[in-house]
């Protein structure tokens, strides 16, 4: 089948990995951006956008989840947030941003992806913190630990398996969301698919699809390994039953 051979040719040629003119291209204002004809550059851009989105989301969701979980309030809020984010199409957010002052391109995509990365981290952090055995909390408070110490040194380690699971879900989901950036003039591996469809080169479309899928599975696998490595052994069994 010619689509397969086209895809194979595309994925095995060194120009499609390194680009016609290297990994970067100059922009009109004297800066540079990642070249959009190089798989390598697009992969780096893809990972950078995903990381930026997840880190932004985690920077807000983790402290918020820890505080809300510690005081055991706001469970309804986390449920509502995750429900809304499920009903809201990513494309809707991207196009809404594009037509607003936020504009389009990578920055807008990172903001949109961060919004979708937010609920899984918040929900899991909240559930993990709020789910810590009340007796354990009592015991820690009774020993004279301050609330801060109870939250960070007792509840947080116990909630870690769930928090790590949330971070993993969030990261995998973000890497899978970023390809949509190509539809609103952003970068990342989705560009290969979008360009291929626009130019009717279906081999490239197929190759792009395989690359995006592999990258997502790789990130998911990496996060799973990290999650396992960073979880203290006694907590691992519970992590498995929670996931």
């Amino acid at each position: 089948m010619s689509v397969w051979t086209d895809a194979w040719d595309y994925i095995t040629s060194s120009t499609s990995w390194m680009g016609q003119n290297g990994l970067t291209r100059p922009t009109f204002d004297g800066g540079w951006s990642w070249a959009h004809d190089s798989i390598l550059a697009l992969t780096i851009e893809h990972l950078y956008m995903s990381a930026a989105a997840v880190i932004t989301a985690a920077a807000i969701a983790l402290p918020l989840g820890i505080v809300l979980g510690h005081v055991r309030r706001g469970g309804g809020l986390t449920v509502v947030l995750s429900n809304i984010s499920r009903a809201m199409p990513t494309l809707a957010l991207l196009t809404l941003f594009a037509a607003s002052a936020i504009g389009f391109g990578n920055r807008a995509v990172i903001i949109a992806a961060a919004i979708f990365a937010f609920p899984p981290i918040l929900t899991n952090t909240f559930t993990g913190m709020a789910g810590v055995d009340a007796d354990v909390r009592e015991a820690a408070l009774g020993q004279g630990l301050t609330r801060m110490q109870v939250a960070l040194r007792v509840e947080l380690p116990l909630a870690w398996p769930l928090i790590a699971a949330g971070l993993r879900t969030s990261a995998a989901q973000t890497v899978a969301t970023v390809p949509l950036a190509a539809l609103v003039a952003g970068g990342g591996l989705g560009v290969i698919i979008n360009t291929g469809l626009a130019t009717q080169r279906y081999g490239e479309v197929l190759a792009g699809g395989v690359l995006v899928a592999l990258l997502t599975l790789a990130v998911d696998g990496l996060m799973a390994t990290l999650q396992k490595g960073l979880t203290p052994p006694p907590l691992r069994i519970r992590a498995r039953s929670a996931a």
Binding site: V175, A176, V205, G208, G209, V212, A213, T216
Partner: peptide, 16 residues
């Protein structure tokens, strides 16, 4: 595994 594959990629894999 199928669920992890991004939607755009899945449509791209099917389209040809």
């Amino acid at each position: 595994v199928l669920y992890t594959v991004p939607s755009l990629a899945l449509f791209a894999l099917l389209a040809p």
